[in-house]
Design a protein around this nucleic acid. Structure first.
Lengths: 205, 205
DNA sequence: TCAGGTCGGTACCGATCGGTACCGACTGGG
DNA sequence: CCCAGTCGGTACCGATCGGTACCGACCTGA
């Protein structure tokens, strides 16, 4: 059993000059997230993460009992930041439900775009009961819930079913962008969503 | 350099009783396809394929120069059979463009459903230039082309753009089914596609 | 001053990875 | 009958996998 990180240690205050980012745990999370997203969880060994982050092998297992725990921690962090990013970009694009596709379009044109980390996780972690797969599925539920609030705010009478369709379109756009590598799938999905939104019932008022 | 399989050998005619299916190459392809689909390409080692298929290690490398060659061969075979299966099921469901979603619904409820092998391949084989990734992308193009012919036959004026939207919906449904594990995503995508089809321009006649 | 905790570095472990080489058994066509 | 070719089995290779143990250096709070 590896010991766990407890509180803020000494070197976050003073000038710690050994590694760049704050502490070992944070460096591991940041480095692993990059590598996992770019090449896949299974394709990236612990050694790669250690050399890329400059963290010692023992330090790794002091913070994470196993590689799988790092994977889950990375996914949880990405889930939070991704949804915060989405809310930010939606607001920047007017705050309407269709803005989620404008946000996706921004991601698709990045040259480091490699699809959705959570879809990729559900593909790689085949077992639906595995912790990583569960976290990925939870992320999708959370996104669907967020889209539902957007639709509700926009005055859609029964936002739940339309939110499910929006999420399906988002996932379809992401997977399509994986091979088209352009913003086109986002605008395509947006156009479809616009048709759905236009024909949706509006709540009174 | 491993020698390649040339022509039909002796034991396909006579009673070959060592292994069940016809020959070693076919057994390798069948077994590998099952395992790759169920657990992922990277997760399945050569040893697993050998023990599960009953093929000797040397025989493996007589037929395939490397594991990657087996992967590509598996994908090519699956591409052909999958599209033949789709055409068959579409015909069974009336032959209309929307029948593709009825076909998908059949797949989603299978308990061995693990998404689309080609989407999974594009996720696992991160490098877009890798042979496996290329074959997977080609498969999607072929499916889109097939959907386009369905739309054209149905009298849609400009079937290309609508075919792209249909394919996006299909991929979205597949990814969604990966976590919902039911036919619901297929019917959901079908409903969306029906709206698009209804509002599409029809060619004269 | 000193115990306690975190740090990076390294040696090491058994297991598995993809791949090669060689073996004897088998069967067909010449 | 015998050579060519395919078969399954196995020993073996170097590399890498995830994980453990121990080290000295460093800083903190008592």
């Amino acid at each position: 059993m590896a010991r766990r990180y407890r509180s803020v240690p000494f070197w976050v205050k003073g000038g710690y000059h050994r590694g760049m980012p704050v502490n070992a745990r944070q460096r591991l999370l940041t480095t692993a997230e990059e590598l996992f997203y770019a090449e896949g969880v299974r394709a990236v060994g612990v050694e790669r993460i250690l050399s890329a982050s400059g963290v010692g092998r023992a330090s790794f297992y002091r913070h994470f009992a196993a590689k799988d725990d790092l994977v889950v921690a990375v996914l949880r962090g990405r889930d939070e930041r991704w949804r915060a990013w989405l809310a930010d970009r939606v607001a920047a694009h007017g705050g309407g439900p269709l803005a989620v596709f404008d946000a996706l379009a921004e991601r698709f044109v990045r040259q480091d775009f490699r699809g959705c980390a959570f879809i990729n996780t559900m593909v790689e972690a085949a077992d639906p009961d595995s912790p990583a797969h569960r976290v990925a599925a939870q992320h999708k539920s959370a996104v669907t819930g967020y889209v539902e609030t957007l639709l509700s705010t926009a005055g859609v009478a029964e936002p739940a079913s339309l939110a499910a369709e929006f999420t399906l379109l988002m996932d379809g756009a992401i997977v399509t962008a994986l091979r088209e590598r352009s913003a086109a799938p986002a605008t395509r999905a947006r156009a479809v969503a616009a048709v759905l939104l236009a024909s949706a019932d509006r709540s009174p008022g």
